[in-house]
Design a binder for these strands. Structure first.
Lengths: 143, 143
DNA sequence: CGTTCAATTGCAACTTAATCTCAATTTCAT
DNA sequence: ATGAAATTGAGATTAAGTTGCAATTGAACG
């Protein structure tokens, strides 16, 4: 079950896997792509087991600490998170017209970043690259 | 004077260069590096010409629209801006221990990003790359 | 100069995300 | 089953940023 590693994380800290936390984890694992806390909260409201807003936010923070989930950006309104467990690292292109998010990965990009870190004696642990602009569809539409 | 191009921008839109707006622009141009709106507001409070919080925020938005200033990230608490006028594009390394921000630039990185955009038929207009980790000093201290 | 009118200001109320407080409840190890 | 410790939910709170509106200001024109 997907909450296994989360449970490990919790137990290792003397914390408990409650039904509310399971509801949050379950919801996140059943969603693909990015999500926002508020949206997550309302989806949980509509599911079987309910959890308060406070619990959803608290669980989300625990998930980030556990490394299963990552905060990938702060949009105009609030944070955006992403499930990293079982997902390969990638970066994002965001269309400023329609909001579409395109994921991509480039080995070259990673290598160069490592080189840069070495150059500055910086120990890089993570990064976020966001390229903003217009996606293919919006470019066509504008023409 | 540095507010010249800003004035051009304003005039082109039928807006006015007021003393409050000048105070904001002056403060930003006299600061090097990054800044946060709230901090900017308090610095202006302490200077000769004062401007209300509302005016500071409104002017900041105009400056972003004019392209002289860019919002480079949202930190834990609020936005972080940077003066782009007269500054070459660069990316950031942020030390998660001490908060130090190191600026760097890599031609390679830019080229590869352009290639990626081409590959996805994406028209990239700007990007933000933030590498998080530990800076040289904090690495030493931890040892 | 002074008039005129749209743009601007400041204040305070508002919005929205997220956190915190605390009494009541639940969990897990024993 | 029991008890200590963790967790929950409801609502208050915080903080960044925005907005509405009456009063004020700037600049273009005569």
């Amino acid at each position: 079950m997907e909450s296994k590693t989360f449970q490990d994380f919790l137990v290792g800290r003397g914390l408990k896997l409650t039904k509310e936390r399971m509801a949050v984890v379950g919801e996140i694992f059943s969603t693909h792509g990015h999500f926002e806390p508020e949206h997550l909260y309302f989806k949980i409201r509509g599911s079987g087991i309910k959890a308060s807003r406070a619990s959803v936010y608290r669980t989300l923070n625990l998930l980030v600490q556990s490394g299963l989930v990552e905060r990938i950006s702060r949009s105009e309104k609030g944070n955006v998170y992403e499930l990293t467990f079982g997902h390969k690292h990638h970066d994002h292109m965001v269309c400023t017209d329609c909001g579409e998010v395109i994921e991509f990965y480039s080995e070259n990009l990673e290598t160069i970043q490592n080189d840069i870190c070495t150059k500055y004696s910086f120990e890089g642990t993570s990064h976020t690259l966001e390229i903003r602009g217009q996606c293919r569809t919006c470019r066509k539409r504008k023409k």
